[in-house]
Design a protein around this nucleic acid. Structure first.
Lengths: 339, 339
DNA sequence: AATGCGTGTGAGATCGATCTCACATCTCAA
DNA sequence: TTGAGATGTGAGATCGATCTCACACGCATT
């Protein structure tokens, strides 16, 4: 079937018997246009179902009304929530959202960003994979492309950012474990390249240090942030001769992995092992016992980042703003007193 | 800071002392180009960090290497998984992914689609909100824009689709409840406009009918597909004088909502009430008891849809293919015998 | 010497929307 | 009556990449 190409401005102009320039004026209401002419044009546009070609518009004025968003993994409910909130705000502002997963690979992040930049995308919200390797981010700044860092910051990249108090959250969690009598406290963490992982580990270490507990790397397991990987890592961690008596996990997928691992190992919470997770999740209160977590204001993060971005896009040029949300230890029932 | 605009082909040509045409030939390797010239151009491009403007390319050849994806809500792990899988395949094929949430609003879906179409996007994967109102989808077909329906089909829209056996899955679940002696079986479902909701309800009704159980609309609650709404709807459903003895929920967020609602009402599973959910979820095996579910092969769906789309994009023009995956009843511990 | 082909290159059109000009009118005041 | 200003409109340039066309050269064949 002959697929009728979508109508162009030229078609509209022809139908209305005016020039393209006049048609454009009528449709975008700028400059002088006669009332009657304007009506003719509107009518013609309506009849043809005219819908400007955003590509051509973008080519002309240099930018596409799309914002790019590069996150670790949309399957993580934390990022899913953020992506959703950004998309909603973007839509309100007449933008669409391109999403890419870096899958926590720096290479992926770099190539994704390059690919999106060649689209003349107007701004980016990125959760950088690495705290150090960030030439690609710096070059965005250098070329004045609005960039908002989310969940993580990157050294030497001077731009708006939205993060939470990871260090404090982790510290509170571990201090609580210590106060409950635990000494062999495990840490199940993400790759150390990742900013949040690093900060949360730092909180963990600070808490141990303050309590005079010597760091012990056998207490630390690293895994990718998926339920499956976390299960394996937890099992490894708890298969030692002297396993931890408590575990702190750095995100909700890992917390869920730990839960599944404990069950498969026949370890019962909180009797055999205590657990605190970073980032709350829907069913944290449904398990038995309910899981104690460090919660972060997930619903604020994406919205805050999107607002920062759209401020920049509408021309704001003041100094970069660093938003930092507090975290909160929510005590439920997954930690037992050790004595 | 003067933000140096990205280098254009003209810049490269100028630096290499050739015409734009020649530069283009050298970079895209077509037509005749002298060896020496080609090298000069490559060198110039390298030095300037030239990276073609995909917008201009797209304007010229009519299409942007982006695929659009309109789903109900990325926060639903089901859709998140699908979006993720599509993004991965798209990236492998050199495409980027634009994501939009219809939030199950037809209007939203229509305007999102219009907005993406004006971007000259090359193909779409859509989970249509409504089974009937689909002029916007039909017009895509009419204009030969590749479209893959996912999770749901739409009447009169003749294109590739990927769905699961909703009717059968729901039927098996309800038959099982009936076999376990339940008669007052509740249904917590999504809006009836939604294809899956309708099919799952149909399976529910068929099972009841076959067993000679009269339909009773007091057994049916409708809610949006979020944990919060599902909590409310469940509480309403179970606050009747003669509440159901078992509940079938049509997706995993609603299942989780039902779990939370039951707990807040002090109803224990499976003693006071039995539960089966459609769509498995991470913690379904972690709750006590574990939740019996109808599982669908989530990891296949997005990949299958993406493959169908990229087949179309690479020119395949055979008859629309209708992929349908089976569902499986996974019996765990959330259903008790009634009698 | 005339013709043909293979090779290499540049000028210019094209995609669609926008914007700057220049050129018309028309009105009102000096 | 002339000129200044407001009001309308169209021709053409522009954004950046691509592609068609025409033109050049060299070498080999008749």
């Amino acid at each position: 079937m002959a697929r009728s190409k979508p109508a162009t401005l030229k078609d509209v102009a022809a139908l209305a018997n005016v020039s393209r320039a006049t048609a454009a004026r009528a449709l975008n209401s700028y400059g002088y246009v006669g009332d009657e002419t304007a009506q003719k044009v509107q009518a013609a546009a309506g009849k043809l179902g005219y819908r400007g070609n955003r590509l051509a518009q973008a080519l002309r004025n240099g930018q596409l009304p799309i914002v790019g968003c590069i996150l670790g993994d949309i399957q993580n409910p934390f990022f899913a929530r953020i992506a959703h909130d950004i998309e909603v705000l973007a839509r309100e502002c007449g933008y669409n959202l391109v999403i890419g997963s870096s899958e926590e690979e720096l290479g992926q992040e770099v190539s994704l960003l390059a690919s999106l930049r060649s689209l003349s995308i107007r701004g980016f919200i990125v959760a950088p994979t690495s705290a150090e390797n960030n030439a690609h981010l710096q070059s965005l700044i250098a070329e004045n492309v609005p960039l908002i860092l989310i969940d993580r910051v990157a050294e030497g990249v001077d731009c708006d950012s939205v993060v939470v108090d990871n260090e404090g959250g982790a510290r509170k969690a571990v201090e609580y474990l210590i106060a409950m009598g635990h000494r062999r406290i495990g840490l199940l963490q993400d790759d150390m390249r990742i900013f949040t992982s690093r900060e949360r580990m730092s909180g963990y270490q600070t808490a141990l240090g303050t309590a005079g507990i010597a760091p012990d790397e056998r207490m630390i397991a690293v895994s990718q942030s998926t339920v499956e990987h976390a299960v394996d890592a937890t099992i490894r961690l708890f298969s030692q001769k002297m396993p931890p008596t408590a575990l702190f996990t750095v995100d909700s997928l890992m917390t869920q992995g730990a839960l599944l691992a404990f069950r498969s190992m026949g370890l019962s919470i909180p009797h055999n092992v205590s657990l605190i997770g970073f980032d709350d999740f829907n069913l944290a209160t449904f398990t038995d016992p309910q899981i104690t977590v460090v919660s972060q204001p997930v619903s604020e993060i994406g919205r805050a980042a999107a607002r920062l971005l759209f401020d920049r896009l509408s021309g704001k040029t003041d100094a970069p703003r660093k938003v930092r949300f507090e975290t909160k230890l929510i005590i439920r029932g997954s930690v037992s007193r050790r004595g």
